[in-house]
């Protein structure tokens, strides 16, 4: 269930970018973890995203990206990602 969208997403993003290989979901996800760290990092305000429900993450990220949800910073960051990458990230963090 959780792995499923990721597999499809990976296939899609490779198919849509033949010239330049797309980064792996792991490579993208490692950037997220700096601010949305594991509990050990001791963050207070920034939401943790390990085990985050996949459906909700897709809703949040696409909402930020498309200007339907207010944000201070994620609106700018999420514009870097395609639907497929957002699906893949959501599946990745949900599976942690």
């Amino acid at each position: 269930m959780q792995r499923h969208p990721w597999i499809i997403a990976a296939a899609l993003s490779i198919a849509s970018a033949p010239a330049l290989a797309a980064p792996t979901v792991e490579a993208i996800a490692r950037n997220c973890v700096v601010c949305h760290g594991p509990k050990e990092a001791g963050q207070v305000e920034i939401p943790k995203i390990a085990n985050y429900p996949a459906r909700k993450m897709v809703e949040m990220l696409t909402g930020f990206r498309d200007g339907q949800k207010e944000a201070t910073i994620m609106n700018r960051i999420s514009k870097a990602f395609t639907d497929e990458q957002i699906q893949a990230l959501a599946a990745h963090f949900a599976g942690q």
């Binding site: 601010c35 760290g37 594991p38 050990e40 920034i46 201070t72």
Partner: peptide
């Protein structure tokens, strides 16, 4: 958030 960023990057 800046403080959380700092905690996160040090970790």
């Amino acid at each position: 958030y800046a403080y959380d960023w700092y905690r996160g990057i040090i970790y």
